[in-house]
Nucleic acid binder design. Sequence first.
DNA 1: GTTGAGCGTT
Length: 268
Amino acid sequence: MSHFGRSGPPDISDTYSLLVLNITFRTTADDLFPLFDKYGKVVDIFIPKDRRTGESRGFAFVRYKYADEAQKAVERLDGRMVDGREITVQFAKYGPNAERIHKGRIIETAQRSRYRSRSRSPKKRYRDDHRDRDYKKRSRSRSYDRYERDRHRGKDRDYRHRSRSRSTSLDYKGRGRARYDDERHSRSRSRSVDSRSPARRSPSPRKSPSPQRSASPQRSTSPRKSPRGESPANRSRDGRSPSPRSVSPRGRPEASRSPSPRNSNGDE
DNA sequence: GTTGAGCGTT
């Protein structure tokens, strides 16, 4: 009997959100409620689920009524074995409505605007600055990343494992996290694309590579041959095809121009 | 039937 998340957030004006990570995919709010309720008044427990499968994502949000209780729960439940897995409890950084969160407490935008109080702690932003210093990818919606990751959830892990030692990843996990590889890869890719073409990768779908051909009445009327197909220039009618690789009539300019096979490409 | 970095809904 879990009434958490059934009717949405009941009250998030004076609640402290806690993020519970590393929980099993089968752990429900009911399983976490008795655990967290022991250390304080739990207002609500929410576990995000996948849209397609509807399964848990492996983390939950526990809202406490008081900060001291939440802090206590974080210190007490962080690292606790739940369902055979060690969970990680910490204060939530982002809010449900993308609101600012101060020490786990949700600060409504309306109130912030009214007071126009700029008493913002720069200490919390220092962490973001470090990551966004050269990382502009953050501009994109973080939700998008999540969905992209979810779509290829099964294959993502494979790529990660192959990239690095499959056993080393788990060792470096823990609290320190080890996603620097991802950043490095992303940066590398960004630089490469930027150098080659100013336009970044377009989100063009894999399917229907030529949607324009769909509307071609002329094609349908004469699907036998193309108007340019009879062109002698395009077709090797004289027996010699104008191959694009041959800049010189020799046919093998590479052998003549490159007597030394070494240093073929100056890119690498 | 699986998986394991991360930050949220009626």
